[in-house]
Amino acid sequence: MLGLKDLFLLFFKIGLFTFGGGYAMLPLLKEELVAKRRLLSEDELLDMYAIGQCTPGIISINVATFIGYRQARIKGAVFATLGMIFPSLLIITLIAMVLKQYMYNRYVTYAFAGIRIGVVALIASVLLDLWKKNIRNYADGIIFVIAVVLLGVVNLSAVWIVITAALVALLIGECVKK
């Protein structure tokens, strides 16, 4: 179990190295929470994304709250969330106050073009691991294909994808049982 200070510092670190939305955070969360500290299983991390996806608020904050609560109840949820938003508060305030021009500096732009490639590579690597672990039988494959079609062809929002997947899983589960 992590203490409040540890939770704050852990999510401070994750907030500091997250470039982009909640999914960009996934490789870091996996490294820190699943591989290094073994606070969560990979499955639980995915469950958190599913829940974060369907509940109000931005995913990254939902995931931080979720993990904080699991570690130290409401106080943990609050400290993890505060840790997550602290780097943004510092950096954005600083930029808004004095460094606005620096964001348009050539070298900063180059560095961020590089970082974006790194983020895609990290996500691709995590996806490969997740795929190996979670797509194991026909039922998993069917749900994956349904989700891809709903996302790519029907252009349904993430909330509906998750709800549909849950219902299909329930249906398959009940049929297999009989």
């Binding site: 939305g21 499955d43 599913a50 996806l127 797509i135 790519g152 994808i161 997947a165 849950a166």
Partner: peptide, 17 residues
């Protein structure tokens, strides 16, 4: 349901990626 959602979350991450 939670187990069934996981492949769908993977699909979501694929599209975000």
């Amino acid at each position: 349901m939670l187990e069934g959602i996981r492949p769908a979350v993977i699909a979501l991450i694929v599209f975000a990626g």
